[in-house]
Every structure is written in structure tokens, then in C-alpha cells.
């Protein structure tokens, strides 16, 4: 197990390095003068040269690459001060360190993800299991039908409807806003509730359908029938035997969804005017603030790799055939 973990972590580091290198060359080799972009409209040649030097753009490309990569690992010095590791460079727009702006936004993204996750896992898996348990009955038909209808909804449609109902017309709730969790947990909860519910609704529908179908598939497995032939209670067979097998596809999808959410829930953030990682990514891309775009990308890649490893560990936990081979 330990060997497996070491191997995966080593692999992840290598892949992170490759992604870093790849994004660097992709961005910095495009024929564009970043200094000019950063300098703005009324740019004098002197200013341009200063900016160029500040950004390190006057150095040869290999040196720039080395500085970029070593900055991630060891930190790096800029005219405005020391940028400690992991240093992802300086924003063209704000002049802030990229890492700092990401970390600034991350609590919101994390809150959004974790809160939504709790809701959609409980509701989605619960109703999927219920539908599978009551397969073919009215309950199953209602749950399945609702999940199909809801999964065809979109956040940008559902969001304004909910806002309209709960905020604009009735004023039951305030417009979503992020509060610091440690300082004002109550406000944090109320502020995030609408985005959570709206986002989780879409995911719930997907997870309902998925868990229902994998459960039904698992219930047809021969070993499930054997468990019944031994006289085990139906609920025991359902939760111990069939459920175990359906965890594999669920965990797979969950890993992918989580890494996507952690690298920024763009639509949700825009719908509720929240400034998270997704917002940062889109804004930087619109203003061609490339260090930020790259930083966010690397940040997302990190979660993809991390969740990949976690999913593999989950496989090993669920299935002894993975663990013992």
C-alpha cells in the first residue's frame, strides 16, 4: 500500500512538473508582448522597459522558465518583494502575487464545494438507493422522473428563479454573500445556502440517476443472489453486497466532479456574484492576465491529480482485488 502511495505521489509530482512546463511554453511562446499589455494605453518606452525588467521578460526564455519553475518550489524575488513558495508569479493587472490571490479566493470555493457536496451526496445517493430498492414501483417512477427533469435544468436558469422567489420578491433571504466561516459561521451558512441548494439540485439529479442504475446493475450480480440464497435479509443484501459494488462507479464520477468544483465553479459563482477561483480564472483570461490564468490552471491540475490518487485509494479500500494485487 505504502509502495503504491509513494509511486502515485512520485508520479503526481512528475506530472505536475510536466503540466507546469507545458503551460509555461504554451503561454510564453505566443507572439504577444506581455509588457505592453501590462503597461496600458499611454505607455512610454521607459515604462515599458521597466515593466519588462520587473516581469523578467527581458531575460532569455530558458532563464524565464527556470525562474518560473524554481519559484514554484523555492520562491522567488520580485521588485515588490519576496514571493514565497509556491510562487506562481505576479499578476499583470493587480501586481499581486498570483498565489495570494488564489488563496484569497479559495475559502469561498471550498465552502461552495463542501456544502454542495454534503447536500448532493445525501440527497442524490439516498434517492437513488430508494428508487433502486423500490424498483418498478410508483416511488421509483416519481424519483426517476424528477431526476430526469431536474438534471436537464441549468444553474443559470434555476439560480435566478430561486433568487427571484426567495430574495427579490419575498425578501425571505438575503442575496448570497460569503462570510468568513471561522468568524461568522451563522452568516456564512445563510449566505451560502442558496448557492449550495441550487448547485446541489443539479448534481443530486445526476447522482440519483447514477446510483439507481449502478445499484440495479449490482442487484443482478450473481453474488448478490448467493447472499439472498443464504437467507440474508433483503436490506442486508442491499446495503452490504450490492451497495459495495456500486460504490466504484460513484467514487469515480465523484472524484472528477470534485476536482472540477475545487478548481472553480464558474457558472455558480457568476450566477450568485461570488468571487471564487472560477471568477478569478475567467477574469484573468478576459484581461489576458496570463500569470493568473496559468496559476489557476496549475491549481486545478493539482486537485485533479490529488483526487485521482484519492479515488485510487478509495478503490483499494472498497475492492480487495485492487488492494491485494
Amino acid at each position: 500500500m505504502l509502495q503504491f502511495l509513494i509511486r502515485r505521489l512520485t508520479g503526481a509530482v512528475v506530472i505536475m512538473f510536466l503540466i507546469g512546463a507545458f503551460t509555461f511554453f504554451l503561454f510564453y511562446t505566443v507572439p504577444q508582448d506581455f509588457a505592453a499589455l501590462s503597461c496600458g494605453k499611454n505607455c512610454s518606452p521607459e515604462n515599458l522597459a521597466v515593466i519588462r525588467e520587473n516581469l523578467g521578460l527581458d531575460k532569455p526564455l530558458p532563464t524565464q522558465f527556470w525562474e518560473f519553475m524554481s519559484g514554484i518550489v523555492a520562491g522567488r524575488d520580485f521588485p515588490q518583494g519576496h514571493c514565497s513558495a509556491p510562487c506562481l508569479g505576479v499578476s499583470f493587472e493587480s501586481g499581486e502575487f498570483v498565489w495570494d490571490s488564489i488563496i484569497d479566493r479559495f475559502p469561498l470555493t471550498l465552502s461552495l464545494t463542501v456544502g454542495g457536496l454534503v447536500i448532493f451526496l445525501i440527497l442524490g445517493l439516498g434517492s437513488g438507493l430508494l428508487a433502486a430498492w423500490k424498483r418498478g414501483t410508483v416511488v421509483d417512477k416519481i424519483v426517476s422522473g424528477a431526476s430526469i427533469v431536474l438534471s436537464s435544468f441549468q444553474i443559470y436558469l434555476l439560480g435566478p428563479i430561486v433568487l427571484g422567489l426567495l430574495v427579490y420578491s419575498t425578501g425571505i433571504m438575503e442575496f448570497p454573500k460569503y462570510y468568513n466561516f471561522t468568524e461568522e459561521p451563522g452568516a456564512w451558512f445563510l449566505g451560502m445556502l442558496i448557492p449550495w441548494v441550487v448547485m446541489a439540485t443539479i448534481f443530486t439529479a445526476q447522482y440519483t440517476r447514477m446510483s439507481r442504475s449502478t445499484m440495479i446493475e449490482q442487484l443482478q450480480e450473481e453474488h448478490v443472489r448467493t447472499a439472498r440464497a443464504k437467507g440474508m435479509r433483503q436490506s442486508y443484501v442491499f446495503f452490504r453486497y450490492a451497495w459495495r459494488g456500486s460504490l466504484i462507479p460513484i467514487v469515480t464520477i465523484l472524484g472528477m466532479d470534485l476536482s472540477a468544483l475545487l478548481s472553480g465553479a464558474v457558472v455558480t459563482e457568476f450566477t450568485f456574484d461570488l468571487a471564487g477561483i472560477g471568477r478569478l480564472a475567467v477574469d484573468s483570461s478576459l484581461t489576458k492576465d496570463l500569470p493568473v490564468t496559468m496559476g489557476v490552471m496549475l491549481f486545478g491540475a493539482f486537485f485533479i491529480l490529488l483526487l485521482n490518487i484519492l479515488v485510487d485509494l478509495a478503490y483499494a479500500y472498497i475492492d480487495p482485488r485492487v488492494r491485494l494485487s
Partner: peptide, 14 residues
Amino acid sequence: AMIFQDPLTALSPY
């Protein structure tokens, strides 16, 4: 009690 044909699929892998 019952014994099934294919013991690989008839026993739970978990």
C-alpha cells in the same frame, strides 16, 4: 441451501 455454477461470480469479491 444452494450451490451455484460459477464460484467466481457467485461469491462476493468484497
